[in-house]
């Protein structure tokens, strides 16, 4: 039901705002079928129809019989961990250009391992150093990829 409502809202947003604002079409296109706008509008229309279908089937089905997720006895903590994971991802994007890929990877490896409450903290720290270095060695020296080095650490 919620999914259907979301699909209908997304279709409306696309049709009313997103496509007119963010899809440009040359003014001399005579036939709408060949216009760059046609395909996005058609897809938005089908998304809306699918949304209505989902709402209809949601109204028919008993929601109590289909839980959205596995029951968890620590739902609050789970959401906090997910939020922290989102922060780690944002920090990754911010740190990559300055710190370089190797150092950033070391930090996010350690942070993620402790976020999932690893029972092997020493192993996690050793792997946090070794895994990014091994991957750097492969991608930089075998695959020939220019891995960002950053301003702090310069590797051969």
């Amino acid at each position: 039901m919620r999914l259907g409502v979301g699909a209908v809202l997304a279709a409306l947003f696309l049709a009313v705002y997103a496509i007119p604002a963010w899809v440009s079409s040359p003014s001399n296109v005579g036939n709408i079928i060949l216009s760059p706008l046609f395909w996005p509008y058609a897809l938005a229309g089908f998304t809306g129809l699918t949304g209505f279908g989902l709402i209809y089937s949601g109204l028919r089905l008993d929601q109590s019989g289909a839980p959205l997720e596995e029951p968890s006895d620590e739902a609050g903590a789970a959401w906090v961990r997910l939020a922290l994971m989102a922060v780690i991802m944002v920090l990754t994007m911010l740190l990559l250009p300055g710190l370089g890929m190797v150092l950033t990877s070391m930090l996010i490896f350690a942070a993620t391992a402790f976020l999932v409450r690893t029972r092997h903290p020493m192993t996690a720290l050793v792997c946090a150093v070794l895994v990014p270095l091994v991957l750097y060695a492969f991608f930089a020296h075998v695959a020939g990829v220019a891995i960002p080095q950053g301003e702090v650490l310069r590797l051969p």
């Binding site: 990877s105 996010i108 490896f109 350690a110 993620t112 391992a113 999932v116 409450r117 690893t118 029972r119 092997h120 192993t123 996690a124 792997c127 946090a128 895994v131 990014p132 991957l135």
Partner: peptide
């Protein structure tokens, strides 16, 4: 250990 494997997969 899955909790070591997952950060490795992320990197």
């Amino acid at each position: 250990p899955k909790r070591i494997l997952i950060p490795a997969v992320l990197v």
